[in-house]
Design a binder for these strands. Structure first.
Lengths: 206, 206
DNA sequence: GCGTAATCTAATCAACT
DNA sequence: AGTTGATTAGCGCATTACGC
DNA sequence: GCGTAATCTAATCAACC
DNA sequence: GGTTGATTAGCGCATTACGC
């Protein structure tokens, strides 16, 4: 069990992302994709994100939840193999490793500094804080979220009851400047079509 | 959790039916049928029984176990209906009611007398006792088993440690009367199950 | 030991009276 | 409508909380 | 209230250093 | 090889006991 998080968590800094509502058309596409591949590659998720006009991170979350709910009966009925027996090797089919997973994001030291500072202040930032950080350091918000997850997990940070409650520090830093990242070697190819990745910032190389 | 049944139940009267071993060919047919209809009609079960040369009761058991194991995701994935939406009424398709389920077996009073006597002696007969009863009263053994199940359930008979061996039964009447008291308010079965004031024809009509 | 057939209860369905 | 044979499941998913 | 998106931890994988 | 970003599950199945 996680933590007994505060029930009425309406503090601005801790407000969570508003629920995404998928249309039926979107759901049709998602479900269809899920039936074909419950574990889509990153490329597939990107394609889906484009197709249904949604952030890739939402696609990711949707697949996670879907897998968790009906947990796609383990490995497609092993007994069914009694009928047709063929375990042919098709190694090349598996070698779609490019696009398999999202390319690792690298953070600059200044970005890390900002993140760590924010983390020390509040290891459980809500959507607003994350978004602000994302803009501030020029990294997709979804990456911010992941970074905090990993950080918490590795620091064994336990959820506190009402981390701050009344005091807010958010709006007082008007120093978006300076954070300009060093012009890393871009995101390389122009194939970056996602609205999710920014031109500058941590070089999400691949 | 049922009851702590006696672990080494090797007494002849309580020996259970020996395990049926299906061949791969039989399994292929069964699995195929299961995928088409996890809830086959009685007619289908009979057809299968004929096809793979097995008692119909074994078919029944096999389907029960199969459903219990991978419990065929509830109602064929409701969300999938987003694709094709039509709940057309095809009442005639459902009206295959004949052969839907096994036709109800009627017992003569003498048959019932024999069954009740055996039941009072041992409410948990093994395969041998059941088979003997089957021959004795001229009813399939599977029906004997079902009869004992229903009888036990409706008398709330609890499994006792070593029903035979010490020979003779001790029905704790307290349990029975207590149940009947409850029966008054629930009104379900006020019938006296301990005596046979019954008389009717003997036929497994269909 | 594991896999799974056999077994069991409680509930419900449904045929016969 | 009651009695009783026939059939069936046996079960929920990490926690939380938002939006309908 | 329910459905389910969002969130969380712990573990593991895997890219980059 | 360590560090750390990315991805994933989060979990059974009524009980019993036989036969391989």
């Amino acid at each position: 069990m996680a933590q007994a998080v505060s029930p009425n968590n309406t503090t601005a800094a801790n407000r969570r992302r508003s629920r995404t509502k998928f249309t039926e058309d979107q759901l049709k596409i998602l479900i269809n994709a899920f039936n074909q591949k419950p574990y889509p590659s990153y490329a597939t998720k990107q394609r889906l994100a484009l197709e249904i006009n949604t952030e890739e991170s939402r696609i990711q979350i949707w697949f996670q939840n879907r897998r968790a709910r009906h947990r796609f009966q383990k490995r497609s009925e092993p007994e069914e193999h009694l009928e047709s027996s063929q375990d042919e090797d098709h190694p090349e089919e598996k070698i779609q490793s490019r696009g398999d997973r999202r390319c690792r994001t690298s953070y600059t030291s200044s970005q890390l500094h900002t993140l760590i500072e924010a983390f020390m202040n509040n290891p459980y930032p809500g959507i607003d804080s994350r978004q602000q950080l994302a803009i501030e350091i020029g990294v997709p918000e979804s990456r911010i979220q992941i970074w905090f997850q990993n950080r918490r997990s590795r620091c064994h940070v336990q959820r506190k009851r009402e981390p701050d409650e009344a005091l807010e520090q958010r709006q007082d830093q008007g120093k978006i400047s300076e954070v300009r990242v060093q012009g890393i070697e871009t995101t390389q190819n122009g194939t970056d079509l996602t609205s999710d990745s920014y031109s500058s910032g941590a070089r999400t190389r691949w």
